[in-house]
């Protein structure tokens, strides 16, 4: 169980929830997720990325997309939430990587924030490309070098965030991305990324979150993988993008 510390709307339909649970917070690696039991009206837990961790507390950044996340958004400070985790593999940063390029599409910012926090405190250089539909976007905590893009041009570059990727590729020792499927499909086609180590975090409908029910299986160039246990982070070039559906 984790106790809600705060739960606030940070942009339209998106909430930031801080929870107290040392067992999860201290153990979590960037890119891991938790399975959240969203009240008695739901049967399956909802998988949510760990957004940030700070001492005994950790944060979830989530969009309301159904009755589970709707229920979660109603939880007040002090409420005990039944959470399993941390789960999954998380991002793998090589010891000698100096420059990390992070690419976030929309709510895909969620798991990348803890990666940025950790990398900066480890003395690495981080550039975060953050693309959203418009200026109704999550205001990032300070300390991260951010390059913004909006589809309507209301902030930063006008267009898709993926259009800004090529100019940063050479600088980056490693690239980490989280966003919607079209963003990944666009990246998978970029010749600039063919020989780069690119890790992506996949979102998939899950059952157990522990690798036992086989609901979230995907086929990769390394064979069948469970997104919950073998992922959610995969090498972009291992994923067979034509077969991914969510």
């Amino acid at each position: 169980m984790a106790s809600v510390v705060s739960n606030k709307q940070v942009m339209t339909g998106t909430f930031l929830m801080w929870l107290e649970c040392a067992g999860i917070s201290l153990e979590a690696r960037p890119g891991q997720f938790v399975m959240v039991h969203c009240g008695e009206e739901t049967v399956l837990r909802r998988p949510l990325s760990i957004h940030q961790a700070d001492g005994g507390k950790f944060a979830l950044l989530y969009a309301i997309i159904g009755k589970g996340t709707q229920w979660l958004s109603q939880c007040s400070p002090g409420v005990e939430v039944d959470i399993l985790g941390p789960l999954g593999n998380g991002f793998m940063v090589y010891p000698d990587s100096r420059n990390l390029l992070l690419i976030a599409g929309g709510i895909g910012i969620a798991p990348l924030m803890s990666l940025a926090d950790r990398a900066i405190s480890d003395g690495r250089n981080v550039i975060l490309l953050y693309g959203t539909a418009n200026k109704d976007r999550y205001h990032l905590p300070s300390g991260v070098t951010e390059v913004a893009a909006t589809e309507d041009g209301s902030i930063g570059y006008k267009g898709m965030i993926t259009e800004l990727v090529p100019e940063h590729v050479e600088w980056a020792d490693q690239i980490f991305a989280c966003g919607p499927l079209p963003m990944y499909r666009a990246m998978a086609k970029m010749s600039e990324l063919k020989n780069k180590p690119v890790q992506v975090s996949l979102e998939m409908r899950m059952g157990c979150g522990m690798g036992t029910c086989y609901a979230c299986t995907i086929r990769t160039r390394q064979g069948l993988k469970q997104v919950c246990k073998d992922g959610p982070v995969f090498d972009m070039n291992d994923v067979i993008w034509e077969e991914i559906k969510t």
């Binding site: 399956l44 409908r205 059952g207 029910c213 086989y214 299986t217 995907i218 969510t246």
Partner: peptide
């Protein structure tokens, strides 16, 4: 097994096609 998606929640239930 079957193609994705393989699981969906319904009212008080779960549909699966693993």
């Amino acid at each position: 097994g079957n193609p994705q998606p393989r699981i969906a929640e319904t009212a008080s239930g779960v549909l699966n096609s693993i």
